[in-house]
């Protein structure tokens, strides 16, 4: 799952390519910050901190944790909405995490080669045909669909708190009967967090690995946007 090596340039990188446009980079870092905040606060909502002693009126810790969680959730949803807009108006790379070119034979070939490479069944890295198919699959499944799943289940649960007839209930209330009941939605939401965190670990590992052994820059490109060939 070469999560970050993914948005490779269409040509074998011999020249710097402006791959990640500013809104894509902004989304990446806002998304990253939101996921870390949401995971930390979400974990504490599921497994609260040890009880603090003293007067009840001195504390509001769970209330604050929930406030931060909800705020970060709103931010995550808004940034994804902005990212979807940018996929419509941005460059080719900005669209790659929203679809898979399954109608292209070359894409499937690339996918097979890449899987074989990661399973140590192939010594040579896959031929650079412009896409890193496996990475695209991972980004779509885990990041795009995973985040959407968390937004839908999250706002469904949020709507439970706001009550019947609230905006969140009207927009996302249908999610709860889909799962059976709120407890189930809660647990799937929690499971979704762990899946996203697994993705984060793999994503960061692959990004750093690609930066070290890959042919182009990886870490700096999501900061500056340019994917440059590395001098060897």
């Amino acid at each position: 799952m070469a999560a970050t090596t993914t948005h490779a340039s269409p040509v074998p990188a011999s020249q710097p390519v402006y791959a990640f446009q500013a809104p894509v980079r902004l989304y990446h870092w806002v998304n990253a910050a939101c996921i870390f905040t949401l995971a930390a606060t979400g974990y504490l909502i599921a497994h609260p901190l040890p009880t603090v002693m003293g007067e009840a009126s001195d504390h509001f810790i769970m209330g604050r944790i929930r406030l931060v969680h909800f705020t970060a959730g709103y931010l995550l949803a808004v940034s994804l909405a902005g990212r979807i807009y940018w996929a419509l108006v941005g460059n080719q790379v900005s669209r790659q995490i929203f679809y898979l070119p399954v109608w292209r034979g070359s894409w499937w070939c690339g996918l097979g080669e890449e899987i074989a490479f990661y399973l140590f069944l192939r010594k040579e890295p896959p031929t650079e045909s412009g896409h890193a198919p496996l990475a695209q699959v991972a980004m779509l499944l885990f990041n795009t669909l995973g985040t959407l799943f968390m937004i839908f289940t999250g706002f469904a649960l949020y709507g439970e708190g706001l009550g019947h007839g609230s905006w969140a209930d009207r927009a996302f209330g249908w999610v709860v009967p889909l799962f059976g009941d709120a407890e189930r939605v809660n647990n799937w939401h929690l499971l979704g967090m762990w899946i996203l965190l697994c993705f984060v670990i793999i994503h960061i590992y692959m990004a750093v690995r690609a930066d070290i052994v890959g042919r182009t820059t990886s870490l700096s490109s999501i900061v500056g946007g340019w994917r440059s060939p590395k001098g060897r």
Binding site: P48, L49, T51, V52, A56, F60, I61, M62, E160, A182
Partner: peptide, 22 residues
């Protein structure tokens, strides 16, 4: 059945304050 037990519970303020029976 419009609201959860939690939202109507008289112990809800303790939840928001992070005060739990372990």
């Amino acid at each position: 059945y419009g609201e959860t037990i939690h939202d109507r519970c008289y112990r809800r303020p303790f939840y928001d304050r992070g005060l739990f029976a372990d």
